[in-house]
Design a protein around this nucleic acid. Structure first.
Lengths: 231, 231
DNA sequence: TCTATAATTCACCCAACGGTTAATTAACTG
DNA sequence: CAGTTAATTAACCGTTGGGTGAATTATAGA
């Protein structure tokens, strides 16, 4: 069964098994498990080496599966890369859902979003390198993905509402484009973390210590809130 | 003659020729020209496809030279990549020299630096992708480069002086780390331009129009100056 | 228990890739 | 102008890489 149909799998057997007894005897054949293993190994591989540098043989080896299965489920290296991207985006979208920004005061909401972005990038370095790779390829893969278009983030609209609320309360400056602000929040975290190796080399200063991290986050919040808050 | 000695070449023949007569008959053999052709083709190739995606054969083809010359002058693909990085850094350092920030009023200097950074990234998209590639490889190449360490930018110190001057004049807030500020200025331009393909795809909005560009630059200046200027 | 099908394995292909050997030729030097 | 050295070329090499064809085996359903 191809990957595109996996989401609809009922995993009937697992359910019936667990309802009978909590002992889960591992099946020697499990299409879902195999595909997830491939995706996990592929995400690691692509994020480590980029699309061109990634090796299909190594993905198979790390997934502990025969290489042929990768082509059986994902057709090609490029399609596998797209599947990885889609999964990665799905993950961050899901994390964004948990934010509940609308329940917070405007300034608190902006700070929360900024801190979330920073923390997410720290905890998911693959996200950064995968996006870099996809941009090197001019978003060729994402552009032909339907799943991505369906997955559009409600965050921009939420952000727009927060900005409007803050402005009405007289604490935010007016005329802020939520897309620009969102990109800026992402920028300040992303660039620092994604380029930390060259930056560390050039400035001769380790940017990945916990102290450096907290200083950076503090700086980013200052910049963003300094911009958003009215003088 | 290896690449590391090229800088010391006297180009005696060209000079004597030009002093005699303005007619420049091209030599069929010219080590300097060959190496520069390789570097130019390599910069293009590496920035387009990344280190792993770049093809040595294609570099040779575009440089219109025999592939063997690449190994003759640059030893290996990795060493060639390093040479490209060094050249790219040398270029931006040279451009920074022309800025003369110390001659400007503090706020003007910050704005000038911000606009310069933006413009430079626009005009040199290879710089962005090359840095991304080097970061994917954890700055392996830059770290073993002496030339890079010698080429450290005086910009951070200049920026520190500007910040200090602005603070004394009472127009800048205090306690700004020049390295953090420099990284932030770079971030806001870099991320937008480097990730424009995925951002455009996700937001369904073309970020590379001249209108979008000027809006972004304007936003960036607002953010940076909003942060730096005292309330 | 038989059967159909999905999951998995094995062995293989060949083009492309980074790199090399050795011969050749152009240009400087005395 | 001969001799030396540097620049360039042509042909080649071993390996790796993405991708396949076809056989095999486990599992679900009848």
């Amino acid at each position: 069964m191809p990957y595109s149909l996996v989401q609809e799998n009922t995993k009937q057997r697992n359910m019936t098994n667990q309802s009978k007894k909590t002992v889960i005897e591992p099946r020697s054949r499990d299409a879902d498990r195999s595909q997830l293993a491939i995706l996990a190994a592929a995400r690691d591989e692509f994020s480590r080496y980029g699309l061109a540098g990634a090796r299909v043989d190594r993905i198979a080896e790390n997934a502990k599966l025969n290489k042929r299965l990768i082509y059986y489920y994902f057709t090609s290296k490029d399609d596998l890369f797209l599947a990885v991207l889609e999964g990665t985006y799905a993950d961050i979208r899901q994390a964004e859902q948990q934010l509940h920004l609308t329940e917070l005061a405007p300034a608190q909401a902006i700070r929360r979003l900024t801190e979330f972005t920073w923390d997410y990038y720290i905890e998911h370095p693959e996200f950064l390198t995968l996006l870099n790779s996809e941009n090197l390829h001019q978003a060729r893969h994402l552009m032909r993905s339907e799943r991505i278009r369906e997955m559009n983030s409600p965050l921009i609209q939420t952000l727009g509402e927060i900005l409007e609320r803050g402005r009405k309360e007289g604490i935010f400056r007016g005329g802020i484009d939520p897309v620009q602000l969102y990109i800026s929040i992402a920028s300040l975290a992303y660039f620092y973390l994604s380029n930390n190796h060259t930056l560390s080399a050039v400035f001769g200063r380790n940017l990945m210590t916990t102290k450096a991290h907290s200083e950076r986050l503090s700086h980013i919040c200052d910049v963003i809130l300094g911009y958003v808050l009215r003088d």
